[in-house]
Amino acid sequence: MSSPERLQDLLDAVAEGDRDALHRLYVLSAPRLYGVTLRILREPGLAQDALARAYARIWQAAGSFDPRIAELERWMVAIARQAALQVARGRSELTFDQTASERDEAAEPAAPGTISAELRTLLNCLAELSGDLRRMILLAYYDGWSREALAVEFDAPAATIRTWLLRSLEQLRQCTPR
């Protein structure tokens, strides 16, 4: 996804109901979004279901995307994350057939060759949190861990986990520039 102008053109066409444009947008962006949903759901069938929900949402919301307030790629990744979380929390019916046999372990996030200045800033902010709090935030963001899952892992009541998460968010809010 390295040509933002072209992605924006495609999204504009999608907003007008152009399905071919959505397909071209899919070809360019799906590996990234699938990486997100597979990492959270770890089950290819479920991850593909979340991916389908994400593109249905992109199709629906294309007209409301506003490049003044968000970046297109981030917007699409955010949609994919929320679609995966929705599937993970088992909120609604699943639609696709899946086979449980093809189970690929989602890869750990790998350090890229170069780290952007923005990422460096955020990592510095995360580094100011204590080890457990930082791990909690990363497990939630990358792996979609629920409060309850974190409660088990960190051996604390879910309400306590929530308080820790809120404090971490408060600290990150002060640390990160908007």
């Binding site: 799906a30 593909q48 955010a78 990363l138």
Partner: peptide, 19 residues
């Protein structure tokens, strides 16, 4: 949207997987 923006740099570390 502001929170999505704050966390977005972490997306750089997600490995792309061809569906």
């Amino acid at each position: 949207i502001a929170w999505e923006h704050r966390f977005a740099p972490l997306n750089d570390l997600i490995v792309a997987v061809e569906p």
